[in-house]
Design a protein around this nucleic acid. Structure first.
Length: 839
RNA sequence: GCGGACGUGGCGGAAUGGUAGACGCUGGAGACUUAAAAUCUUCUGCCCGCAAGGGCGUGCGGGUUCGAGUCCCGCCGUCCGCACCA
């Protein structure tokens, strides 16, 4: 047996064996229980990075473990292959996006294979291929026919650099998420998916996702943003461009008698109508639009208003009128684009009222006696009883809300309403490298879906990227077709779908991929929902919400009887690394620096280097570590082991040279343990106990994805085996140890398994059985405390009675000395744990 | 501003209210070696002490308890998400 484990040979060998035997192919017809383990599929950016390695290693451990437990496991891989970077590359490097993308996929597939992941490559898919996106077009048309897709003129976020429309979610601090350019507002005809139709069920569904992180559920809940309140109308005292009423929304109808003004958004029809005849109003509106939209600017932005001179009539008192302002803080796209202000109980209204000298009245107080207390320096937003509010006086806030809504509805001036923050999903993108929207525009018939027998609508290959904008629109012939309905000359839709559509159903296609339709319902339902989904928290809202919506939409149209696509979700932490800076402030990469005593210096020049914080690996800070050379040097198993060690998987993992060295040493150590194991006789009860406790602990820790703890369990067992004298138990322990590490370091495990003379693959072996009688110790260590402070420990048989433990504790020399002849006032005995003497 | 998470050795981190620091990394000492690497042994929270032993220790201040890293109250700090949402 070789003295050293050679990963370069072993990795390639076993990867080939697994591939030849089809070890990780999932059968749709298996009678075994099923398990679907999925990691978020990568964008083919060019090369695998450490974040991928960590993500896919976690999923792989779980997938391999489940297989050993007897499950039929589906663990597939594919490529989220449409998107902007391919077009950027096309523009910069004069290479076709498809060529660039497919080359990247080939590279990255090779890199993934070298890591030995137990993937079913027969189900590999790439979203940029017609045999994927064609089916997506079919699903889009199904949703269109079901009325879940519509087209509307809408003001959109226009990215002037990428020359495309962005979803609200893709605008961060007023800038495009990719280009960083300041976003403009433009009116375009766009396709929308009716995600708001599902707002309620998407929100309620979160309650069923008990295997999701609370954090993600909360983020989605906030994103959906349900608010319940009252929508009601004010009558205007003057006609404003033909509009006699102003509709507002409030979540605090209970404070209706505390109103001191009403305000509309600068984009509100009343404001726009006013601007036509009042230049001061027009000037104010223009000023509002000039304001910055970054977070910092918004936070410090002053509340500003323009008094229109119009008065609105209070719905509960026709004698009472309020001034109507145009105000910069009122958003057109939330609620009705108009509000009424209650300065006493809303901080924003308070600031506005303070500035414009409007009354600040109290209508909620801690008690009825405090009705005349003035409001202090801040609005009071808490609960209490209603005061100064006529028929509402004395009611609790919630009761008053209900009463005002009831009254508004019976008197006909308003209605209890739910308002959502969630907007419909705009999916049109003015890009080439995406799924063509399968619609034909006919002058006579309007938009017509492409007949299904004409799908896929394939992207033309002959396009150029020498000018900005959408090459599909410029293509000489592609868009010119005849109308499927009337046969007249018509044009194709030249927009493509948001790439988040592609990732909203790929997990279904993995489960079932027939040629003639997107998926077979019955096959897909055998696998779905995904049992465990693993990926970065950056997808907590967008991707996960869209996929949940898409799944529910398919259910509504009867295509799939699944409500939630991902039963379990895990969001893993990032891989981080120290940062280094030269004297001139420029970033240095890890291989440009070296240690010099306690300091760091530049490798070549020897100049001192400043060590910065540990941060997410990024190209801009040059603190990335490319996995491939690491695999070349240490092999796949050492990298995998390191990815699982030390840091809890949900937290960041600091990459270090010492860490990978340590992982490499352990892999070699495992090899030596297997290679050097001497056959021995007899039973070693203590080792057997440790072994079975470890089997149980590792299983439990893998189940809960606590890989760092499973790793620690394995180290402990390895230490115990090495310390134990030769015995039959020890031989079994080494074999079992290999089974326990097999999901984590599979190449080494196969090699050692074979070296021990086993003929089957360890990948096909069963997870070891636990002997429950060996999980309990027969001797326990008892802590002896005086006043809660540890003074001694003693060994006692498990289950020893309290009296015995107390006697033993009192007999301890150390205890006798500390007590100094005085009997304890009280004795607390916790069986099998401790004795606490209160002196 | 709102919401959330987290603060434990030199570092990553363990710890059903019951022996804080498992396990790993780093570092020290020693063995093997002509030497180095690898490997093995051993020590490694801080302070006092030759030692035996003792004292202090889980961000800070209180509280509950025989006993608190863990539970409760109040601060401080770091990170993340949302952000004028009516």
């Amino acid at each position: 047996m070789a003295a050293r484990f050679n990963p370069l040979e072993a990795d390639a060998h076993w990867q080939k064996v697994w591939e030849e035997q089809g070890s990780f192919r999932a059968s749709n017809d298996s009678a075994k229980p099923r398990s679907y383990v999925l990691e978020m599929f990568p964008y083919p950016s060019g090369r695998i990075h450490m974040g991928h390695v960590r993500n896919y290693t976690m999923g792989d451990v779980l997938a391999r473990y489940r297989r050993m437990q007897g499950f039929e496991v589906l663990h597939p891989m594919g490529w989220d292959a449409f998107g902007m970077p391919a077009e950027n590359a096309a523009m910069e490097k004069k290479v076709h996006p498809g060529e660039w993308t497919r080359a990247n996929i080939a590279t990255m597939r090779g890199q993934l294979k070298r890591l030995g992941f137990a993937l079913d490559w027969s189900r590999e898919l790439a979203t940029c291929e017609p045999d994927y996106y064609g089916h997506e077009q079919a699903l889009f048309l199904d949703l269109y026919e079901a009325g879940l897709v519509y087209r509307k003129q809408s003001e959109v976020n226009w990215d002037p650099v990428d020359m495309t429309v962005l979803a609200n979610e893709q605008v961060i601090d007023g800038r495009g998420w990719r280009s960083g350019a300041l976003v403009e507002r433009r009116k375009l005809s766009q396709w929308f998916l009716k995600i708001t139709d599902f707002a309620e069920e998407l929100l309620d569904g979160l309650g069923t996702l008990d295997q999701w992180p609370d954090k993600v559920r909360l983020m989605q809940e906030n994103w959906i943003g349900k608010s319940q309140g009252l929508r009601f109308r004010f009558r205007l005292t003057q006609e404003a461009a033909g509009m006699g009423e102003l509709e507002v929304f409030t979540t605090r109808p209970d404070t209706i008698f505390g109103a001191s003004f009403a305000a509309v958004s600068p984009d509100h029809p009343i404001a726009l109508a006013l601007a036509d005849r009042d230049s001061a109003a027009a000037e104010f509106i223009a000023e509002c639009k000039r304001g910055g939209t970054t977070a910092a600017e918004l936070e410090t932005a002053e509340k500003k208003g323009f008094d229109t001179g119009i008065k609105v009539v209070h719905p509960l008192d026709s004698e009472w009128t309020l001034p109507l302002y145009i105000a910069n803080f009122v958003l057109m796209d939330y609620g009705t684009g108009a509000v009424f202000g209650v300065p006493g109980h809303d901080q924003r209204d308070y600031e506005f009222a303070s500035k414009y000298g409007l009354p600040i009245n109290r209508v909620v107080a801690a008690s009825a006696e405090e009705a005349s207390e003035p409001i202090g320096s801040e609005a009071e937003t808490g609960g209490g009883v209603i005061v100064n509010s006529r028929f509402l006086d004395g009611m609790e806030v919630e009761a008053a809300k209900a009463e005002v809504i009831r009254r508004a509805e019976s008197e006909g001036w308003g209605k209890g309403t739910t308002v959502w923050r969630l907007r419909d999903w705009g999916v049109s993108r003015q890009r080439y490298w995406g799924t063509p929207i399968p619609i034909i525009h006919c002058e006579a018939c309007g938009p017509v879906g492409v007949p299904k027998d004409q799908l896929p609508v394939v992207l033309p290959e002959d396009v150029t990227f020498d000018v900005p904008g959408n090459p599909l629109d410029r293509h000489p012939s592609w868009k010119h077709v005849s109308c499927p309905r009337c046969g007249a000359a018509a044009v194709r839709e030249t927009d493509t779908l948001d790439t988040f559509v592609d990732s909203s159903w790929y997990f279904i296609r993995f489960a079932s991929q027939p040629g003639h339709q997107p998926f077979e319902k019955a096959d897909a339902e055998k696998w779905l929902p995904v049992g465990q989904y693993i990926g970065g928290v950056e997808h907590a809202i967008l991707h996960l919400l869209y996929a949940r919506f898409w799944t529910r939409a398919l259910k509504r149209i009867g295509r799939l009887d699944i409500e939630e696509p991902f039963k379990g979700l895990f969001t893993q932490g990032m891989v981080t690394h120290e940062t280094y800076r030269a004297g001139d402030g420029s970033w240095l990469s890890p291989d440009e620096v070296k240690r010099d005593g306690d300091d760091w210096v530049h490798f070549e020049s020897g100049k001192p280097v400043e060590v910065g914080r540990v941060e997410k690996m990024s190209k801009s800070k040059k603190n990335t570590v490319d996995p491939e050379p690491i695999v070349d040097q240490y092999g796949a198993d050492a990298v995998r082991w390191f990815m699982l060690s030390d840091s809890p998987p949900e937290r960041d993992l600091p990459w270090s040279e010492a860490g990978i060295e340590g992982a490499w040493r352990f892999v070699q150590r495992l090899w030596r343990m297997a290679a050097d194991e001497q056959s021995g006789q007899g039973e070693d009860k203590a080792l057997a106990r440790k072994l079975h406790q470890t089997i149980a602990a590792v299983a439990a820790n893998i189940e809960s994805l606590a890989f760092n703890k499973a790793v620690a369990n394995i180290y402990e067992l390895a230490n115990a085996i090495e310390k134990a004298p030769p015995s039959a138990t020890r031989g079994q322990a080494v074999e079992t140890l290999l089974l326990l590490v097999a999901p984590m370091v599979p190449h080494l495990a196969e090699q050692a398994w074979a070296a021990l003379g086993r003929e089957n693959l360890i990948a096909d072996a069963a997870w070891p059985e636990v002997d429950p009688t060996l999980l309990v110790e027969d001797e326990v260590t008892i802590a002896v405390q005086i006043n809660g402070k540890l003074r001694d420990t003693l060994t006692a048989p498990k289950g020893a009675p309290k009296e015995t433990l107390e006697e033993m504790a009192l007999a301890s020399e150390k205890i006798v000395r500390v007590l100094d002849g005085k009997p304890p006032r009280k004795v607390i005995v916790v069986p099998d744990r401790l004795v606490n003497l209160v002196a």
